[in-house]
Nucleic acid binder design. Structure first.
Lengths: 246, 246
DNA sequence: GCCGTCGTTCGGTGCGGGGCGAACGGTGAC
DNA sequence: GTCACCGTTCGCCCCGCACCGAACGACGGC
């Protein structure tokens, strides 16, 4: 409050960062990349309905801003989110946009892809959707995760994950928290993210407890997975995916 | 990935939200309001160095976007952050802007107000700066706060706060977490936010353990406060504010 | 009552940037 | 080598919007 030349030194940086997502095309690109997969420029251009040249400029700005990184692979270049930090950033921002996604209710029904996504999906690198929220709730009820005084694993939670084969220690040079709350887009409730969430997702997929369906972002628990998760989490079977199969 | 008419229904909302902060003037306004105090339009216009008419338009956009709310009081209208959600949003975004604030190192030295702010300040409604980080570290070392498996208070932490007179239960109709990690701008390390952080800040100020200095955002621990905090936190005196008095 | 202040609204101006098409280079397939 | 394709760069247009000055309503002080 002492000068009117430059109000706040951080304002320009904040504006620049926000400006990266302030365009609808760039926002759509970041949302599309939330599943951690790399995409080509042409693919994203088609997806967003803009010319390849336009998409090229957008991608350059996102890369310069540090949100995306390029990956050359043979003939064409791919682009993906820069890392967990960037993913968490987009996640948090997207989660704050409450209205448009939820409760379509009347009017047209969500198509099958949307229903599969609502049931279960990966959010960057951890489980989300009803499946992710259900597992998080079960862990909380079982005393593995405490949400009452914050959001952290308990000793039981660490033991359960390591017992399943999770690698919770090997995270060099990372400021990523072990457990982090991530607000679910469709459920509007928190689910487990962070290193523990990523390891859990990896384990569940590796063990065949869940499989990717559709384009690869939607995730569906297998009968084996429901049985095993229900057993090790100590919850009644059938509560993990109330909608049954479809 | 099924249509190229509208890439993602959430993209427009995300872009609109980001667009609110994508302008340097609006970003400066939001940062200036982070201390929870209400300001008049003219005040903010002078602060940012723009005409009152320009500021009026910016404030209207921020209010329409839900980040700010107006408050009429007598002759002039005030504006402030809409609530804890909005504050947390701006905080998180600002914390992600790493470079500009820290390590000015060479060139011109930070003036006294900046030094006072670095020592201790309020971040919306909780303690920040070296004071906030030091208290958070002490609580962690004392087993009141666990950061190794997430970010949550322990029973000891809840007991300490309630023993000081904190009201951790009375939070009706709020999705605000009890303990939340907030990345410090100057220290680049997490400090305690959420309901517990707000209560702690209130207690520390009420008991005269710290006082607001300067414009009211900077906070300075009193000798009494250092002594009492060191005693109840079980840490050696003098570690809370290494720089001593100035 | 009149005046000063504060805040908003209304034209008008200029710049930034999102969009496109066309042209250019780099890579793998033939 | 030649071709096809992908991605980028360049010139261009135009819409959006940040900014201002001036004018207008609202309220409290005198």
């Amino acid at each position: 409050m002492d000068t009117h030349l430059t109000a706040d030194p951080g304002a320009s940086g904040l504006a620049a960062l926000a400006g990266l997502l302030a365009d609808e095309t760039r926002a759509a690109v970041c949302l599309a990349l939330l599943d951690r997969r790399a995409r080509t420029g042409a693919e994203l251009a088609r997806y967003c309905g803009v010319a390849p040249s336009t998409m090229s400029e957008h991608l350059s700005r996102l890369v310069d801003g540090g949100l995306l990184v390029r990956e050359r692979q043979g003939r064409h270049g791919y682009v993906r989110l820069a890392g967990p930090d960037a993913a968490a950033f987009v996640e948090d921002l997207a989660a704050r946009v409450a209205a448009p996604v939820s409760a379509p209710a009347g009017g047209l029904r969500a198509h099958s892809a949307g229903r599969a996504m609502a049931r279960g999906r990966t959010c960057y690198d951890h489980l989300a959707g009803r499946l992710g929220v259900a597992v998080t709730d079960a862990m909380t009820a079982r005393g593995m995760l405490r949400q009452d005084t914050g959001f952290a694993l308990t000793e039981d939670g660490v033991a359960w994950l390591t017992g399943l084969g999770a690698d919770l220690a090997g995270r060099p040079s990372s400021r990523r928290p072990l457990a982090r709350s991530c607000l679910d887009w469709t459920e509007r409730r928190p689910h487990l993210a962070g290193t523990a969430g990523a390891e859990l997702c990896r384990l569940v997929l590796d063990r065949g407890w869940a499989r990717r369906v559709g384009t690869g972002r939607a995730v569906r628990a297998t009968p084996l997975g429901e049985r095993e998760l229900a057993r090790t989490l100590g919850i009644p079977a059938g509560t993990l995916d109330p909608e049954g199969e479809g």
